[in-house]
């Protein structure tokens, strides 16, 4: 069933709203969880359990004075946050969240792309342009250092990220994310078939979304806020949004590729018939696992140094992902 253009548009609008709402509450969840891990409460003053905190933050961000650096390249300076948020939001569209027709009779995805996997890669890696241009256009040394770091980091990690899924593509024989999910319901979850690729992909994904221990572009203790240093008010908030939306996209992407996507475990069907086919819930649950992992890592680990990160990316991740792809290829070619 192909949706009409209007329906697709409405669904895209809905997805954007959901993602932005999720972003607002992710900040709250992250701060509360960090609080728990650090012997403190976290925000709990605004509303019950601090539930109104994101709204207060949003109002604050919008009404804060928007300071524009006088020496900045104005056009690019304004453009950068929009590049970041646009590509962050558009990446999610190809990820399926349930079986066909399960969303009030419509399909729970925006577009069903045959090259969905490549599309998500392309959209997420476009985000680095926002970061890079922000740093360059701010005309500030700290911003410049941050943006240079992030460009270098992106290049090192795209390799690991791309190679990690090579074996997966060889096994499933498709780039369509919906079909990859279907393959996993027929055979094994791909995390069991590709454990090494899963690990390298996960690590690369953390680097891709700039989270600890790979949060060099905005390493607060070194380069103040990296590319964000000269941004304020809503433009700063847009970058924050982009970061969190990227986190969510990353989590959903890993879940889809390696953990069976929107499908739940089969054995639960014996308890509640059809529960493994329920839309949304399983994908959100799996995403929650990875989101928690991201927050947990942030509370635990120090940050890697720039050169160590590059070495780690090129020597360990790249080689491991390559090895995994070669072994997978050899097994498919000679054993099966």
């Amino acid at each position: 069933m192909i949706d009409s253009l209007l329906i697709t548009f409405l669904k895209a609008l809905l997805l954007v709203l959901v993602l932005l709402g999720a972003f607002a509450y992710m900040t709250l969840i992250e701060r509360r969880l960090l609080g728990r891990m650090q012997h403190r409460f976290g925000p709990n003053r605004v509303g019950p359990f601090g539930l109104l905190q994101p709204i207060a933050d949003a109002i604050k961000s919008v009404f804060k004075e928007d300071i524009v650096v006088s020496a900045a390249d104005k056009f690019v300076y304004f453009l950068a946050p929009f590049i970041s948020i646009t590509f962050a939001l558009s990446a999610f569209g190809a990820i399926p969240a349930g079986p066909a027709g399960s969303f009030f009779g419509f399909n729970p995805w925006i577009v069903d792309l045959d090259i969905g996997l490549l599309y998500v890669f392309a959209a997420t890696s476009m985000g680095v342009y926002g970061v890079f241009l922000a740093g360059w256009a701010s005309n500030s040394k700290y911003s410049l250092l941050g943006s240079l770091r992030s460009s270098a980091q992106m290049i090192s990690y795209e390799m690991g990220l791309g190679l990690s899924v090579l074996g997966l593509i060889m096994i499933t024989g498709t780039l369509n994310l919906r079909e990859i999910v279907d393959y996993q319901s027929g055979a094994y979850l791909l995390i069991l078939l590709q454990p090494v690729a899963f690990v390298t992909f996960l690590i690369s994904a953390i680097a891709e979304v700039n989270r600890t221990p790979f949060d060099l572009p905005e390493a607060e203790q070194e380069i103040v806020a990296g590319y964000l240093t000269e941004y304020s008010s809503i433009k700063w908030a847009l970058f924050q949004m982009a970061e969190y939306v990227n986190m969510m996209t990353g989590a959903a992407f890993i879940s889809t590729l390696f953990l069976g996507g929107w499908r739940g475990p089969r054995f639960l069907d014996a308890v509640v018939p059809g529960i493994s086919e329920w839309p949304f819930i399983w994908l959100i649950l799996k995403m929650a696992i990875f989101m928690f992992l991201f927050i947990w890592l942030r509370a635990t680990l120090p940050r890697l140094r720039y050169d160590q990160l590059m070495r780690f990316g090129w020597i360990w991740l790249f080689e491991l992902a390559m090895l995994s792809a070669i072994v997978t290829g050899a097994v498919i070619a000679f054993v099966l």
Binding site: L34, Q38, R298
Partner: peptide, 13 residues
């Protein structure tokens, strides 16, 4: 010192 390396939690402990 650990906070300066990016690890937040030990400070609170």
């Amino acid at each position: 010192g650990i906070l300066d390396m990016g690890a937040l939690t030990l400070l609170f402990y």
